[in-house]
């Protein structure tokens, strides 16, 4: 029963994602269909056209296993073996330095905004 529910709900979410892709194609929008899909489901929930029960189980499963969906793309670096062998160290340093910079500055900025926000 749980499995059936998951399959049906994930099928629904997949349908919405494909619809989003189609719409961005037709209207020549320069952003991915999945963003439209998020808005679409959110609006359907907000206007109570669909109930949370209809999508929640499948959505939770997809989010819990999110990392699985990245793994084949990660394996795909193999096609740039040469580029990585010559530039790999630079890529590593750039991403390492930049990621740390982003995390620390975002964290501190958020903490600061929270503090001044408390005064409101």
């Amino acid at each position: 029963m749980y499995l059936l529910k998951c399959i049906a709900q994930i099928g629904g979410l997949l349908g919405i994602a494909l619809l989003g892709n189609k719409l961005t194609q037709v209207f020549d929008l320069h952003f991915p269909g999945s963003i439209l899909g998020i808005l679409f489901i959110f609006l359907l929930l907000e206007t109570k056209i669909i109930s949370l029960k209809w999508v929640e189980t499948g959505a939770n499963l997809l989010i819990a296993e999110l990392i699985l969906f990245f793994i084949p793309s990660a394996v795909g670096v193999l096609q740039y073996k040469q580029l990585i062998l010559t530039n790999g160290a630079s890529f590593g340093f750039v991403i390492f330095l930049s990621t740390i910079t982003v995390m620390v500055s975002t964290g501190l900025l958020a903490e600061f905004l929270n503090k001044i926000g408390k005064g409101r």
Binding site: L13, A17, P32, I41, E46, E56, L62, I63, F69
Partner: peptide
């Protein structure tokens, strides 16, 4: 291919926690 394709409905699924 289908594992990667599931990334799209997974992104759409984020509507649920947002809601």
């Amino acid at each position: 291919q289908w594992i990667t394709n599931m990334l799209q409905p997974a992104i759409v699924a984020f509507a649920v926690p947002l809601y």
